[in-house]
Design a protein around this nucleic acid. Sequence first.
RNA 1: GCGCCCGUAGCUCAGCUGGAUAGAGCGAUGGCCUCCGGAGCCAUAGGCCGUGGGUUCGAAUCCCGCCGGGCGUACCA
Length: 710
Amino acid sequence: MTATKTIRQQLEATVRAALARAFPEQEELRLELSRPREKAFGDFATNAAMVAGKKLGLNPMDAARKIVEEIEVPSPLIASVDIKKPGFINIEVARSAYLEKLREIATFPDDTRYGMAPTGRGKKVQVEFVSANPTGPLNVVSARAAAVGDALVRLLRRTGYDVRSEFYINDSGTQVELLGESLKARFRQALGEKCEIPEGGYPGEYLTEAAEEIVPEKMLQSLAQALESPAGGTDDAAERERAAGFLPALEDEREHIDRFLEDTIAANPDERRNKRTYFDDYFAFREALEPEHVSLWMPLYVCHLSSLGLTFTGDMLDRLVWIERFRSYLRAQRVEGITVEDGGMMSAGRVFLGELVEGVGFDFSRFAVAEIVRTQQASLERFYGPVETLRAKLGVAPGEGLRFDSWFRESSLKHDVDEMLRTLLSDGRFVVEKEGAVWLKGGDEEDANEWVMRRSTGQPTYFLSDIAYHVNKRKRGFEQVIDIWGPDHHGHVGRMQTAMKVVSHVLPDLEIGEDWLRVLIAQQVNLIKDGSRVQMSKRSGEYVTLDDMVSEVGADVARFFFLMRRCNSHLDFDVDLAMKTSEENPVYYVQYAHARISSILEFARQNGYREIPPPLADLALLAAEEELEVIRTLAGFDELVRVSALALEPHRITTYLVDLAGKFHRFYHNHRVVTDDRALSDARLYLCFAVRSILRSALSLIGISAPDSM
RNA sequence: GCGCCCGUAGCUCAGCUGGAUAGAGCGAUGGCCUCCGGAGCCAUAGGCCGUGGGUUCGAAUCCCGCCGGGCGUACCA
């Protein structure tokens, strides 16, 4: 598969060559090639004569005549050339050039790669987006960033960049500590205690669910029941079986733990040894016990926590001590006559769990972050396709949602952060120390701002850590970094740009150029429901999540809506409209065109058209205005992809899709495709096929499904 | 106060990096199914592109000043 030049590129080369021949002494000019709105002015117009005329002090009309003399007309590319009033050169593209593009589209082997271009030249680019704080489910702005970022990644990939997507997890700092405190409160509540969510914490319901993960209710029940029989075991066969079934098979557990060891702690050999020892001990312990000893539950429980990637302050012996303590604790409770019936055993178990979790130094923040990141990942993976209720009807398989190439943890940057600060301090040119804190200042006079990097408490700020993070990106070899941030970060853009400029002076070897970092702001989304805005606030715990959107309007509609607007403009998303009038939706309009073509092609196949697209179709028969409109639009697609990627504006693809679908519907309405006229039918089937290819190509660029029937 | 984003049809937004007579969807009104998919098509109405200057052959687009809306402006992230 090779990429050919777009028609615009071909024309530009031709005009430049003509210009160079007409005015050999003139160096390269910044000439423009635009598409006139008015059809009478041709397909393209160039201001070459006006620009050149001005430079050389010539009348633009005369310059235009000189240039036009040097353009070969007619040629396979250009049908005719015309000079208009101030000095425009209007170019009519030859039909052969359009038909050539049409052929290229229809014969291109892979629709999901059509439009590929060498523009990026394998440049190593990172797109970082969503990067929501791990303090709750993904909200609407995250959904928007996800749609835009994913489309951008696909767009850049299509145009020859070596792109990696990244999600940055802010898993350290005050907010995360607060999150841990909040989870701890929920945990206490789950144990039956009265406990308030701390001031400024996170009252959302999702933490209750996470807390219940820590205290699996059924484990407690099972445990309490088992302890009703003498010596913590049971003679009842059914009960024994149930108890045994409560544990995973030994081999399964081993496999699970091995995988855990590989994934989570491979990076740190010391940690690995500790864990390995712990698990070996655990297995030894476990194998020594009879299956019906349900008190085995406790090591299982400890293991369960470990498998979630949590660290413990104690070692295995400590845990065994705890387990022993638990047994005697429960026995003691038994002696005092506590039974399952009065709920005493349950609460005894709860109290003990509370103590255990405190005793092993359970890290609530880490657990909460791990838990939330997991749900965020799951949400993103579901971010594809039509709404669930239509999925079967539209015949779309659950496709791959959004997967990031990497998830980067802020907590892994500790070393980089320290080093960054040391480097800046020893350089000295851009730092100020005052009021016990360390500040960064811009280099030049016009940027007199100063920002704290290290607090007087000695703690680094988010700003410093973000500088270190971006330097880390550069060190990983990215030649260009694109960040998509939420609206609350837009004040951060300026100082980050300043910081990168500073870094380029302090660490010149990194070669951080002026536009190495490009930041897009995914602006605010106002959800309109029942005609009024839905208020969103993390603090109140009430907001519309990505999951809500996917289940209510579907990922296709959500993505399309987000990509219909430039990402830096505010957006009113009318949820009622998106659902209520879903039949009038632009998404369905576009998808309908796709399904319609599939249906036509199927109809043709059943009526004796064996090969589609018909290889011998005479495309010159496509001469109706509606057909030419469609062809011109198709022929412009590769150029659109190129320009959208350069401008980092994926929303242009959706605009294009609506336009193309409209032109196709118009064509369809005025011309029957399959008729008695075999030659004409062949040509029109060819056209239909090409339209479908481009629809697929464009839809795949923005991550939206292309159903064959609806 | 300073900085960033946004003002285009009743509503929500495009407008291809400065081009010629301003573009969609929704909403309104009126038409089109013996026929490959009517989730479609056609027509009508709706605009001083917030406003005043500037740059030039030419501005919705670039620059400056106002006016309106939103958001930043923490030793939060």
